[in-house]
């Protein structure tokens, strides 16, 4: 087989799988722009002048608090990410740069969280949140998600920080620069690519999570988008236009984030962590 033919075969196989990966999502998005008749008569056809309709979207916006759910999810993920990046880089720097007694213990303590899913502590987490008066608040979700995100973040940041040349920090120390400034002004700017990697690994599971919103904050006012859409679909099962529109709307934000960060994520993976 010539190289050319082999490359063609590879393209064909990858294309077939790409269709398998994309088709279900595209099918949903395409049909969300059709009338009920169009959805059922010919599901595989693009919307035409006759079948085009945005009635599903109108119904989602009229009958749900989509914007509120979206805002809740945004607050939870952004605040969590900010805290994870700040606290995570601080801890990772301490573990990577300093030699002190108990370093291994602290490292293993944090590594435990990578192996053991935080969900298993749910019974006590709910108990704790109830006694703190935090049930049905976004704060409850944020605190749990920070705790969930930190171990992975510290792990990824440490990998990157191990590559920061030692002389850089040492030179600053010779000039009498305080440790915190070394971290904030020398180290942080150098590990910026790691932040994109962490952003994906921390934000996506939080944005997509159903478990903790369902248990800690199921109230109307604190629903995240994943929980909100799940409940909405449960309620409007028979309204196909609305269901398809709700699903499409739920995919859009994560799609935008992914397309914005995917290049950096792969670079982060190839150059730093998990190598």
């Amino acid at each position: 087989m010539t190289t050319r033919m082999r490359l063609w075969a590879v393209h064909v196989m990858l294309l077939v799988y790409a269709v398998l990966a994309l088709a279900p999502v595209l099918l949903i998005a395409m049909n969300s722009f059709k009338s009920r008749k169009g959805i059922f008569r010919d599901p595989l056809a693009l919307p035409t002048g006759e079948t085009f309709s945005t009635v599903g979207y109108e119904r989602v916006f009229a009958n749900s608090d989509l914007w509120l759910w979206f805002a809740n999810s945004l607050v939870v993920t952004v605040v969590t990410l900010a805290a994870v990046v700040v606290f995570g880089t601080m801890a990772a720097w301490a573990l990577a740069a300093y030699r002190f007694r108990g370093r291994l213990v602290v490292g293993l303590f944090l590594a435990l969280g990578i192996m053991v899913p935080i969900r298993l502590g749910t019974v006590a987490i709910l108990d704790l949140m109830t006694s703190l008066g935090l049930t049905n608040t976004l704060a409850a979700l944020i605190l749990v998600y920070i705790a969930q995100g930190l171990p992975v973040a510290v792990f990824i940041f440490s990998e990157f920080m191990a590559q920061v040349p030692r002389d850089l920090a040492d030179a600053a120390r010779c000039d009498g620069v305080p440790e915190f400034r070394i971290y904030a002004h020398i180290v942080l700017p150098l590990i910026r690519p790691a932040i994109a990697t962490v952003a994906i690994f921390v934000m996506v599971p939080i944005w997509n999570d159903l478990w903790f919103p369902l248990i800690l904050a199921p109230g109307e006012g604190t629903r995240t988008i994943t929980l909100g859409v799940q409940q909405f679909i449960g309620q409007y099962v028979t309204d196909w236009s609305a269901v398809l529109a709700a699903l499409t709307l739920a995919v859009v934000p994560i799609l935008v984030l992914y397309l914005a960060l995917s290049r950096m994520m792969v670079r982060g993976l190839t150059e730093g962590a998990l190598r």
Partner: peptide
């Protein structure tokens, strides 16, 4: 300095992840 660097992460992670797991 060391405590200042490690405390925020260790505290939140300890209180909302390790402690509930142990308590469960």
């Amino acid at each position: 300095t060391l405590t200042a660097f490690l405390a925020p992460a260790a505290l939140i992670y300890g209180v909302f992840s390790v402690y509930p797991l142990a308590r469960t």
